[in-house]
Simulated scan of single mutants.
Amino acid sequence: MALQLDARPPATPAPRNTRPSRAGRLSRIDAKYSPYLYIAPFFVIFAIFGAWPLAYTFWVSLHDWDLLGSDPTFIGAENYTRLLVDSDFWHSVVNTLGIFVLSTLPQLLAALWLANLLNRQLRMRTGWRMAVLVPNVTSTAAVAIVFGVLFGREFGMVNWLLDLVGVDGIEWKSNRFASWVAISTMVDWRWTGYNALIFLAAMQAIPRDLYEAAAIDGANRARQFWTITVPLLKPTIIFCVIISTIGGLQLFTEPRLFHSGTNAIRGGPMRESQTMTMYMFENAFAPYYNFGYGSAVAWLLFALIAIVAAINVLIIRRLGAGARPDTGKRKGGSR
């Protein structure tokens, strides 16, 4: 029987619909734009309560405005040129930097030591960790009142203790350097525990294998701390330095409440501890009500914070450049 072949051409498949479905389009749109939607509230709030007030303050600093009903008068950079020759302003700058140095450096070193201590196997570790945070949650006004009494001239406990060892009483509120020390002690007492908990959280994220390898190589705890803990804590140290710089240069409540009476906003009778924020308040509000001049002080304070923070970060990065934790590599490349 003869084989008959079908001469008909094979059927071609129907073309597929290459257009994406509605669900696929929505999925891609969601993956592309949802992250921006999630972070948008932060930028909206920052623009309203951060960027806009900052820009408005700069605009006000270019005007003469006494806040007592008169309209602002544009004077350009006159407020800034006046500040550069204002001896009281530079006095407040020196006070701010002096208190900042005396408070920030000991505070961060003590916090690092305290965090390393709390990171060990201690009894009631949770209780100790909660205890170091108590000064931070205490009211600033209460802390200032207590420390004001402790550093009192006639009946203060600090002068009483100094008298026991034969040291004459110190004028803590009328001596410039002494007032720096007293206020710095208050700041350190409040914020050391807070920074210690931040360091402690970062320490607990360090792998324990690194310490075990270092211990096998004969490294004691001190060497492990400086060769493993500190290098791996560099990002956290930078964060704490920046936060402490911002807070230290904006110091207002502690020196304001440390002094009492009519000289409180002046930081003492001779402006012994008046910071830049206190000088800004004095000029922008009572008793001078020069809002334009106070805004100029605020902008120079902002510039000072940015400069000091940048210098601190560069110093820390330079000190930590090339520092790597020793993971147990022995001589000859063996492990």
Rank of each mutant, 00 (worst) to 15 (best):
V60M: 11
L68W: 06
D64C: 05
V44C: 05
A47T: 12
F58W: 08
W59H: 15
G69W: 04
L68S: 13
L62Y: 09
G50T: 08
F43Q: 02
W52Q: 07
G69S: 04
W52F: 11
F49P: 01
P72S: 11
V44R: 06
I45T: 15
G69N: 10
V60N: 01
P53A: 06
F43A: 01
W59Y: 15
A47E: 05
A51Q: 08
W52D: 08
L67H: 07
S70T: 00
W59K: 13
G69E: 05
G69C: 07
I48N: 11
V44S: 07
F49M: 10
L68T: 09
T57H: 06
F46H: 00
W65P: 04
A47D: 05
A47Q: 05
F46M: 08
F58T: 13
D66L: 03
L67M: 13
L67I: 04
Y56P: 00
Y56I: 03
A55H: 11
G50W: 03
T57F: 01
F58I: 10
F46T: 10
T57G: 12
A55F: 14
D66G: 09
V60T: 08
F46V: 08
D71E: 09
D66A: 03
L54H: 14
F49S: 12
A55K: 13
A47G: 14
F49L: 08
S70F: 00
P53N: 09
V60A: 05
P53T: 11
L54C: 14
S70R: 09
V44N: 06
A47P: 03
F43W: 10
F43T: 01
F46D: 07
I45W: 10
D71N: 12
F46I: 01
F49K: 12
T57W: 00
L62N: 12
L68F: 07
L62V: 09
D71I: 01
D64V: 00
A51T: 13
F58S: 11
G50R: 08
F49V: 12
G50V: 06
